[in-house]
Design a binder for these strands. Structure first.
Lengths: 205, 205
DNA sequence: GATTGTAGTATCGACTCGATACTTAATGAG
DNA sequence: CTCATTAAGTATCGAGTCGATACTACAATC
């Protein structure tokens, strides 16, 4: 029976509270949360014949803007590959939740649009039963969590070299004009509804 | 284009800071973290021919105590079914990471033990590359996260009706004696090493 | 105009996971 | 003590995931 500590078991000494927190503790907790959350997603999707990944893709497409509705964007969001995503989208299309149409500017590109059924299902699936209950039960916890998790996600995305996929209006290219909003990257006008959507080209201010 | 809000989109008014936090914000963030984390686990396991679930199972078995090393316990931990877990364990056994032996008290039960190779691999996989870097970079964040996440996980487990799978020494059955520790449930003596392991029968104090 | 890069699809094989149908063994009620 | 019930585990099927590889079509660049 070897008693070697696991690799990467790092103790971090906090300068503020002089408490020793070890990272493998946070890791184990977070991984367990992920397991439970993924299972919740599975149970939510199951009655509708959807896998967890399909649920994620559906929800992404219901929230992304017109620059981000392509298979490659979905692949980036899911941190997966275009091959795998192509499979997933094929299933969603067969189930009538999704329609493909060619992009008129770039004919290599496929544009994805949820059907009415797809949007309706996304609306139903958006509520993760377990989390919802926990968060409503304790408002201050929800608040602190929102801040901490956003910070963590930002750091993870930066280190992993992933795109940020933030909401349009939080982007550094987002500008306000006299009669509305505008994207500094595409120079196109944006509606208030647009400004709340997720964008593939999002960059933190 | 319907503009109905997603079901379960709940705004929580914090009594402390008078800030409006919406739960779907937290949810979206957390689901994205999970996606990235799961992918990290996939990438970690891939060089060794392991799927994310196999990694989780391996890590669990490397950290659980002698009351918790059965297929059913693994299924509970993974919030999965015994059928699925049976498959997963069969693969791990074939890869020589795991050995099965019958339980002598209850002959329906199978006891699982990692082989030397299994323990060594668990040691290597315990470090989730992305998280490790983020947490080491900011100690106070790691500290706050540890607290928040444990709170969240506890609430999720309670609402979902899952076991807590906490460390032995944090259990309400754990007692200190003159010459060591003892489990109030099994009445058996516990070594200091035992007291740090995960237990299936764990209950919060 | 040839080369290079990007978006997407098709196919293969190992694995996941729910569902279902079993076997074996412990438990409990009469 | 026996029979019904319950629990632990396995086997099998089918739809789906996902990495790997090979491919097509189009755009961009030089």
């Amino acid at each position: 029976m070897s008693m070697l500590p696991p690799l990467g078991f790092v103790k971090v000494l906090s300068s503020r509270y002089h408490l020793v927190v070890n990272t493998s503790d946070v890791t184990a907790t977070l991984e367990r949360i992920c397991t439970l959350l993924r299972n919740d997603a599975r149970q939510r999707g199951l009655p509708h014949g959807l896998q967890p990944v399909q649920v994620e893709a559906l929800l992404y497409l219901s929230r992304c803007n017109r620059y981000s509705d392509t298979p490659q964007a979905v692949a980036d969001f899911l941190a997966s590959t275009k091959g795998t995503v192509s499979q997933t989208l094929k299933v969603l299309e067969r189930q009538g939740l999704l329609a493909k149409r060619p992009d008129l500017q770039d004919r290599r590109v496929v544009r994805l649009r949820l059907t009415a059924a797809g949007r309706e299902l996304a609306r139903k699936l958006a509520a993760p039963a377990v989390l919802e209950q926990v968060l409503v039960a304790d408002a201050t916890r929800a608040e602190r969590l929102a801040a901490e998790l956003k910070g963590l996600l930002g750091a993870m995305q930066e280190i992993g070299g992933h795109r940020t996929f933030g909401a349009c209006h939080t982007c550094r290219f987002f500008t306000r004009e006299d009669n509305g909003f505008r994207c500094g990257l595409t120079s196109e006008q944006l509606t208030p509804a647009d400004s709340k959507l997720i964008c593939r080209e999002h960059e933190t201010k």
